[in-house]
Nucleic acid binder design. Structure first.
Lengths: 349, 349
DNA sequence: CTAATTATGTGTAACGTAACACTAGCTCTA
DNA sequence: TAGAGCTAGTGTTACGTTACACATAATTAG
């Protein structure tokens, strides 16, 4: 309740002086005055209003973070890493769960914009950035996480991602190397850039190996509202059930993230399939649960710590140099982590 | 960049008129004027500054949410539910990962306070609220989630929790009913209200059953920095390893949350113990993974949807009536979900 | 025809802070 | 002793909005 004026009155100085004290500009100030101001601050339990400061200065040290949902452990983890990283640099983070819904994303961006936030990390890798282009033109800087910039020219200021195609190539090669010939693919409603790339990588790897890619084995979740990242495991379960009840079911499956993989393992077991004896499963992300689940999951690891550190660094650099950053688009390499959810197929044809 | 003045100039009206348009007060306005203003707004791509509004009005429709870490799926899920619930009521949510560190909690509260936020949901159930009392006295309203109010008088405005003791009673009784006599307990560094209650509930239930509670079987994680909620499964793994290598190991274990339980299952398997044949495991929370893991986890469910809806309702009510709410402290009942991680002990003594 | 009333806005002071240009009083120097 | 230079501050404006009291013109009532 107490404002800078109250402090000034109490200390018998001008508001400017109080402002100087607050902001550490007491170099040429008599200690006596300094102390009087300080004790007035303490007495009134005064702390400056962040809102007023923002209005005055124009800039806020807050970043927006738009993710599908923090209920998904992958994004929960990433959110935490990003928040920590931003904090190191004196920035706050405002987390938005947009459920991969372009409309919600646009609304969140609008709301962030109105709050004077000009830097946003976007974690949902939508195929198109059209719904965000307006904001970009209004001066928001958007950093894409987990997504290449192709098709987002102009809208995206910087990006950090992994080589998605390499990731699925690693997974697919591993399965082919084990002797699998019919490999399934499970994804949410395709419609994100990273997922499309992962499917593409798998397809070409299979074909390059001289095998046939059966489109029937690529299962894409229907795009049902409220059936998104918060219920990822459910999607995996549904997907594997459909694949395994096919006339000619796959002997292995590659899922677009670990949550789907966990659900797939569960769904397979319900149908009497053992993992990995009857079905090999490869996930993506290397969420911490993958290591402790049964069986421990073979998966493609994304270097999320590094990625998080890089996006916030790049975004802040963009913000503080108003758009001018060298090397704004970074692509890292994923890594295959082989654990126990994959094995040679039971009966090689 | 464009402010209300620019719009006013462009439309040839006063700022007041523009303000009236923005806020829907165009009842007694000529349509012609209204349209002129609207097209000026559209032309300049104007949207009002939330910051300026806040400064002027004093109130912000934003709630703080302090959780241990959204990287923990339980809190990730709760955060999402709370955000959604708040949104329904026109409020935003600012999520803070405080790692159960009282110092970080106090800092976050300070930062929220400076941003004019006066309503905070606290999800870490600290034993004491001393570090937050100052803020409460400055006029912040704190809602405790997952924590009873005992010992927090004055600091906490409202609370929603479950009957923690009942929860652990249900879990313990279930294990005793299966024939277990040596039941272990795994927790993070005790030091949260909910954890203390859960241990107490277990202890008294065991004693009431005429069994002896062996203090050696209550394993509490050391309080290591950076070894908190983000690495919960690791803690469970470490804990069970110590318990199972005891001279007289337990035949069952009750963990303070599902993440620990998952880690415990993993750690047990590493030592050659099968779940549930050689070791029964009961978790707490009923995180979504519990259902799909192998074996599906027996656990105590917290009605998180209901709890989330209730905290935000109570907190907003508190805020809008400035402290006066009827029935501010709500306690719900947890529920035991029996799945496949529990079974009778292998060799009854 | 005058006064009251209605319709349609307008002008200005807040909100709490920071930046910037300013000043009163003193000390030094040539 | 005039003026330059320093010390230790001060006064005012601006940031973008809303609230509230006020103004002007047209319409209506008696």
């Amino acid at each position: 309740m107490a404002g800078i004026k109250d402090v000034a009155k109490k200390a018998g100085v001008s508001v400017s002086t109080v402002s100087n004290v607050i902001n550490g500009r007491h170099a040429k100030m008599r200690v006596e005055t300094l102390e009087r101001v300080q004790s007035a601050i303490a007495a009134l339990n005064y702390s400056p209003s962040a809102v007023a400061r923002q209005l005055q200065s124009g800039r806020i040290k807050t970043l927006g973070l738009v993710v599908p949902s923090v209920a998904n452990p992958f994004w929960g983890n990433v959110s935490q890493l990003i928040e920590k990283e931003a904090q190191k640099r004196g920035y706050q983070v405002l987390i938005c769960n947009a459920e991969r819904d372009p409309e919600m994303e646009a609304e969140y961006l609008a709301s962030l914009y109105d709050s004077s936030i000009r830097g946003v990390i976007l974690g949902s890798s939508p195929v198109t950035f059209e719904h965000l282009r307006d904001r970009a033109e209004q001066g928001m800087h958007i950093a894409a996480f987990d997504r290449k910039t192709k098709g987002a020219q102009g809208a995206v200021s910087c990006s950090v991602s992994i080589d998605q195609t390499l990731g699925s190539r690693l997974a697919t090669r591993h399965l082919i190397g084990l002797g699998h010939k019919r490999i399934g693919f499970i994804s949410g409603p395709i419609g994100t850039s990273s997922r499309t790339s992962r499917l593409e990588g798998m397809r070409t790897t299979i074909e390059k190996a001289g095998l046939e890619f059966d489109e029937e084995l690529a299962w894409l979740a229907p795009n049902v509202i409220g059936f998104g990242d918060s219920h990822a495991a459910e999607i995996g379960r549904t997907g594997i059930r459909e694949l395994l009840t096919l006339d000619n079911p796959p002997t292995a499956v590659f899922t677009v993230n670990d949550m789907y993989a966990i659900g797939a393992c569960s769904g397979a077991r319900e149908l009497g399939f053992r993992v990995p004896e009857d079905l090999s499963v490869v996930g993506f992300d290397d969420v911490f649960i993958s290591k402790v689940m049964e069986p421990p999951l073979t998966t493609v690891r994304q270097p999320v710590e590094q990625m998080s550190a890089l996006v916030v660094a790049k975004l802040i650099e963009t913000l503080e140099n108003d758009g001018a950053v060298e090397d704004p688009h970074i692509e890292l390499r994923p890594e295959l982590i082989v654990r126990s959810s994959t094995a040679p197929p039971r009966s090689p044809d």
